[in-house]
Design a protein around this nucleic acid. Structure first.
Lengths: 246, 246
DNA sequence: CTTGACGTTGCCGCTGCGGCAACGTTTCTA
DNA sequence: TAGAAACGTTGCCGCAGCGGCAACGTCAAG
């Protein structure tokens, strides 16, 4: 048998057969005078063995070990390990499919919608209309959500939920508008101190929590660098006040 | 922000960030005078977007397309395609785990045991004890099973099942012994013609079916090359006879 | 005699980075 | 203030499991 026949018989490519030779999975058979490899039934048996194990999902390295082990119990160990690995993959696949299904169920699908479901609900209700500061805020929220783990995400969304109630929405819109107005203002502008002093309690709590939480403090810092000096000054003063009387 | 901060913030390695630059997934930010990359919050937003899509299982190429598509419906298409792909993978995983479970349930686990369950049952019952020809026969059966598709496997096992009945087992052992005896015999030996003429009907049927079936004929040919001349002669005569009166 | 199908060796490419080298910059510490 | 440690830069190799190609030799058929 020549390599093409062997390959066709077992159902692989000649390239695969040569690859297995290269890896030492399949012994090199005798050569004819013209240099062609000459295979016997025994080689097909070994090749088929390799294939069956490969189709189960073993890596070629593992297959080499199993075959070298010569009738040992190594096979059982490897297969049990493999099964555990496959179980992990199944769980991961199921989780990904669940997230996909949740995404696909939404009509307003865009790359930013791929945040956690909790935050997605918050973002849907939060006012954004035209406010530059609102857009920045959404960026921050999205980033925090992406970086956080499961628990942090839930607590984070919980913190924000009160802000999406009808009464809070108007105040939120108002807040964004007043911050937008400070985009080109001086940090000493009287509106700065006024805003810091009269921020609604729920919003102030949410802000200081994100700003003080060590896990999100760095996000907050990045965000302040994107603000105008006057806007940043509002939050600096706010934090000073809230640190003294929590 | 420098690259390390950005990476830590989003939860990737700096290597990953640079890789994304290289692929054009993430635009190169401005450089400081020392050549360092200087990132802004906006870059973190893009990077996080890439990460979320990557964690869903999209390839980096697909992510680039989706992001370039700018708020299009391409995302939905890609995600639906991905979901279908994941569903395929789930099915494949489940099938592999089922095969693994069947294998692990068996006490006599060896690399050759990884054939289809049907054939495994046949091989367990077929007599082998010490016969060289029996070993060769098992090799052939295993190879046919490996190469065949689902339907062929089932029909094949069905064909062999009668041979595992108690009455047939003795005749099988006898057949193997008589073939072993021809290992060094001459093709003109009288035992050759005798064996060909008096082979039990069920076995003759099984043999000619495998030998005549185009899908397995090449296997058969490989096997005859492993036999002694006298052994091969038995089957040559057998096929001649059976072709005339089926 | 050519054509085409097969065989040979060997190297690049794919994915998504990790790891290293070889070097410059910044920052902490003794 | 020097030196070490921790960062930054570009660039190339490696990974799994082959596919594809190049550049060549061999063999059977028309």
């Amino acid at each position: 048998m020549r390599i093409g026949e062997l390959a066709a018989l077992v159902g692989v490519s000649t390239r695969t057969v040569r690859h297995y030779h290269h890896l030492g999975l399949l012994p090199e058979p005798a050569r004819l005078v013209n240099g062609y490899r000459e295979y016997r039934l025994r080689d097909a048996v070994v090749l088929a063995r390799v294939r069956r194990l490969a189709e189960l999902g073993l890596s070629l390295d593992e297959i080499r070990d199993v075959l070298a082990d010569d009738r040992g119990r190594e096979l059982r160990e490897v297969l049990e390990e493999l099964d555990a690995e496959l179980a992990r993959q199944q769980a991961a696949l199921a989780a990904r499919r669940a997230r996909l299904a949740a995404l696909l169920a939404r009509p307003d699908l865009d790359p930013d919608a791929t945040v956690s479901p909790d935050l997605a609900a918050v973002l849907r209700d939060l006012p954004t209309g035209g406010s530059a500061f609102g857009a920045l805020d959404r960026e921050l929220l999205t980033l925090i959500d992406t970086g956080a783990d499961e628990d942090a995400r839930a607590g984070f969304a919980e913190l924000l939920r009160p802000l999406t109630e009808t009464a809070a929405l108007d105040r939120g819109r108002d807040l964004y508008a007043r911050l937008d107005a400070l985009a080109t203002a001086d940090p000493t502008d009287p509106r700065v101190a006024d805003l810091a002093a009269h921020l609604p309690a729920g919003m102030a709590t949410a802000m200081t929590t994100t700003a003080e939480d060590p896990a999100t403090a760095r996000w907050w810092q990045s965000m302040t660098q994107e603000m105008s000096p006057a806007q940043a000054e509002v939050f600096r003063q706010l934090l000073l006040v809230l640190r003294e009387r929590p």
